[in-house]
Design a binder for these strands. Structure first.
Lengths: 280, 280
DNA sequence: GTGTTCGTATAAGGGATGCTGATGTCGTGG
DNA sequence: CCACGACATCAGCATCCCTTATACGAACAC
């Protein structure tokens, strides 16, 4: 199973077409046909239906592996390259809720800041496209975030902050001193996958429900808060990131908003300085 | 970076010799030389010192990635193969402390039982060599074990059991009703990496210390207990696995011995039956 | 210092692999 | 029914990679 073939397979599925994938990869169409045929011959099962081009069940299984595999390959290459690389631009990938005032203050010397979800941020560090990641997400107090395993990276907790439920004014629960998530599982929630993904919340809180309401595809927590304040659904945010609406602390289950710093082994330099500043 | 080359690289490091690796892989020596040269040319750095053959720092980095990568490749292949595979022998990989009487009773129809550490057991399931894994290890109560991420596997908790410190009779602490691990960090411990690895204990308990004493390379918990009872060092075992010695419950930090069942998506069959029996 | 030996690197040749361009085949839409 | 779009197949050719043969270099013995 050549990674080259795997990458072609991923592209074909993404494009939904052999010819389009060939264009994108700089091959001719027969080359892509033959690569897919080689993969299917190797594994002994069809991976794609043709016309329309869609993954079979076996193809879906393979897809689940292909992404992490190709990422890990890039990570290996990046890890080796880091040893002999000259210090260059300093890129930080941060979660949308990771940048409080004092965290931002610690980012001296950073050239580029990129906002990305926890998994993407870690992937950027692993593949060498970013030097540091500030991954954020919900977690039980003092529990680590459940970050994908992409190789030998160092992870340190940076901060944990109380979470609040953001409600519109006049909501029946707005007067409560604290709220339990179980009581809100049937309510409508703002579905903001780039700010506070509902599926991660479900996993951490160990509950089903949290019906998705309006979907917000950006990564500005203030917008999510405003949507919640306007009654489009509830949302859960760290206290400092909810500028409006009625904010009621979450009391059960005990979940906090956690920020972790992820980086590879770093030579002394500006990146290491930022790590020191963030962890002190 | 061809996985083929990666695999050759791993073999060369393991054998400590190009020629020996060539023999093992069924190549000639120049083929191995050329493969390593190709890898080094691709990555732009020497990966091995020659005479003696040892990984350079870049090579060590690559090695850290190569194992998981090759495992993941096997896992992908196995995952696809599972879809069209006929039900065959049913193999279970179990941790050394996973098999209590009732757990063993649930293994109806199992053909082969293999004892392996948690990481190895999971790797066996991922690569399709085993159908089920019963991984075991220390963990905070109701926290999952920290198993390596090898792809889309299902994990369910099976059991949690109290841990006891095994002491020789007459030990100054033998009369205590309960023990704190911090107070024992400076004591000598039985180093039984296949039964209860000290490094995992350190990670879970978040402490250094636990000085390794006698090393036991087998995986029989009774032997570890006997070594402890004979005064060769302390050891920590689930209450049911310590047949001798003075057994004092561990009261802090709160750590239990946890067993988790790991398996891929299973078609109905004997394997699924065992899963049902173990999780009910 | 010199010779022997062991182990890796290099060179040349041949077979397999994999890409391109041309053409075939099948399903869809006019 | 025909034309068109899209994937499969085929032939040809360049490249890659493995094998055999040989060169090179370090370690060791004397």
């Amino acid at each position: 199973m050549d990674p080259h073939l795997l990458s072609t397979f991923v592209t074909v599925v993404a494009e939904g077409s052999f010819s389009a994938a060939a264009d994108r990869l700089g091959y001719t169409q027969p080359a892509v046909s033959q690569q897919i045929a080689a993969l299917e011959a190797d594994l002994g099962v069809p991976l794609l239906t043709r016309r329309p081009v869609r993954p079979t069940r076996a193809g879906e299984r393979l897809l689940e592996h292909a992404g992490p595999l190709l990422l890990r390959l890039r990570a290996a290459r990046a890890d080796v390259a880091r040893l002999s690389a000259q210090p260059r631009a300093l890129t930080v990938a941060a979660g949308p809720l990771a940048l409080t005032a004092d965290t931002a203050a610690a980012l001296a010397g950073v050239t580029t800041l990129r906002i990305a979800g926890a998994a993407t941020a870690v992937a950027l560090v692993a593949s060498g496209e970013a030097d540091l990641a500030l991954a954020d997400g919900p977690a039980a107090p003092s529990d680590p975030l459940n970050l994908p395993d992409t190789g030998p990276l160092t992870t340190v907790g940076v901060r944990e902050e109380e979470l609040v439920v953001v409600l519109p004014e006049g909501h029946p629960l707005a007067g409560r001193p604290g709220l339990r998530l179980d009581d809100l599982a049937d309510a409508l929630w703002v579905d903001a996958p780039e700010v506070m993904p509902l599926d991660r919340l479900r996993a951490v809180a160990r509950l089903d429900g949290l019906r998705p309401g309006i979907r917000y595809e950006g990564h500005d927590p203030a917008v999510a808060a405003r949507l919640a304040a306007a009654g489009h659904g509830l949302t859960l945010l760290p206290a400092s990131a909810a500028p409006c609406g009625v904010r009621v602390p979450l009391v059960a289950p005990r979940i906090v908003h956690r920020v972790e710093l992820v980086h590879a082994a770093l030579p002394p330099g500006p990146a290491a300085e930022v790590v020191r500043a963030l962890t002190s």
